[in-house]
Design a protein around this nucleic acid. Structure first.
Lengths: 217, 217
DNA sequence: AGTCTGTCAAATGTCAACAGTCAGCAGTGC
DNA sequence: GCACTGCTGACTGTTGACATTTGACAGACT
């Protein structure tokens, strides 16, 4: 339970990237001992939400452009495999049903201008996609990279997202396209749509934070 | 360090699948307190080498046929992505060099009849493949599934492996084929070779342990 | 006889205290 | 003035003991 709260704090951005965390401080803040704190930290380290070296304070990672690209490379691998698996095992129909529900929710949220909800349903869409594959390993691995993704897009605003897409087709439509490709059993098409979706996302995320020439040391 | 020893014990098969582990027992056996033991156990649980529920003893998982198929589905996803990434970023040459070294080592070990060494180089080949992609996430995720793979093939003998391949082309050649496909930049060919390699492996592993009709309860 | 409940032992989750290690800083020598 | 050495402080890694929960066994009731 303490893991959850810490995870939220990291993802929500309450804990800025680069922040160094002290075990005793966290322990007093959460009102528990250092034991549970250590477990939570270790778990989050293995999820990639924290970086930690022996005898050194754990810290919230600062994600470079390379990290962002890497995260989306990993997501491409996982979600492509999930889509292939879904189509290959003939579960396209029920997968589409669940996915479409998310797509519609996303659309209505966008129409209402509720950007936070759009983001949530976006993430949910991809989570549902991987879950529909029924693969425990895929889901386990995905849960870690989706956390890192949330870390990336946590502070992303609607304007930034729109800015990256300037002139292009509206990015939101690609979710619908992906789900329809899966429904139709078009593996190659689904993979292509997924890849394009992720390439767009990377360009948006890399385009914004011109966070200077990362401190060399 | 205690994590390493426990991991080895699990993978080597010293701890039979289904065994229930007690924290205090492990602590006394290793000569350390329960703290480090808990950390090690938690780490191994997140690696998939142990199963654990709250207030319940952790246990070595018994891998069903579905689990084996799932592990190899995950490996297909990861290694396919690695191969694609290697070719796309033009690192085919140096990747081939490293891979070929492993292939040759495997061949010589097989000629010498040293099956354990063959298995080790087999696993190393795939580890090198993923490492050559340069993706930290891919490597991180792969390290967990390769551990589970070692759990699968731990007790696999040369006869069992040969039995599964009866009549087919020698399974070892596929490694060479994969590395050559990567060298030549043939993405589709590499993916196909990988998939075939894994399908063979699954059929071998599923074919052996006719572990009866898994206890229903 | 079968089932249910009360009790008990063992194991896990948690806590506070101890030992070991690293970063920063003052002081000294060149 | 600059670099090196020794020290101080804080933090992590580890330990042993305490509370809480689970699983099982024995006994009584239907």
């Amino acid at each position: 339970m303490v893991t959850e709260r810490l995870r939220e704090d990291i993802i929500e951005g309450t804990l800025a990237p680069g922040t160094q965390l002290s075990e005793v401080e966290l322990a007093t803040n959460f009102g528990v001992s250092r034991g549970p704190i250590r477990e939570a930290l270790q778990r989050l380290i293995q999820e990639g939400l924290l970086r930690g070296e022996p005898h050194r304070r754990v810290s919230v990672p600062v994600l470079t452009k390379e990290d962002v690209a890497d995260i989306y490379l990993a997501r491409t691998a996982l979600e492509s495999a999930a889509a292939q698996s879904i189509i290959a095992s003939g579960k396209s129909e029920e997968a589409f049903e669940q996915l479409d529900r998310n797509v519609r929710a996303m659309d209505s949220a966008e129409a209402a201008g509720d950007w936070e909800t759009v983001k949530r349903h976006d993430l949910d869409f991809h989570t549902v996609l991987v879950a529909a594959s029924g693969s425990r390993r895929l889901q386990r691995m995905f849960s870690t990279v989706i956390s890192e993704t949330r870390l990336c897009v946590g502070a992303l605003t609607a304007e930034e997202a729109r800015h990256g897409h300037e002139g292009e087709s509206p990015g939101e439509g690609t979710h619908r396209k992906i789900s329809e490709m899966i429904r139709d059993g078009d593996t190659a098409g689904a993979l292509e749509a997924l890849k394009k979706h992720f390439d767009d996302a990377v360009s948006v995320l890399a385009g914004r934070d011109a966070e200077g020439p990362a401190p060399r040391k």
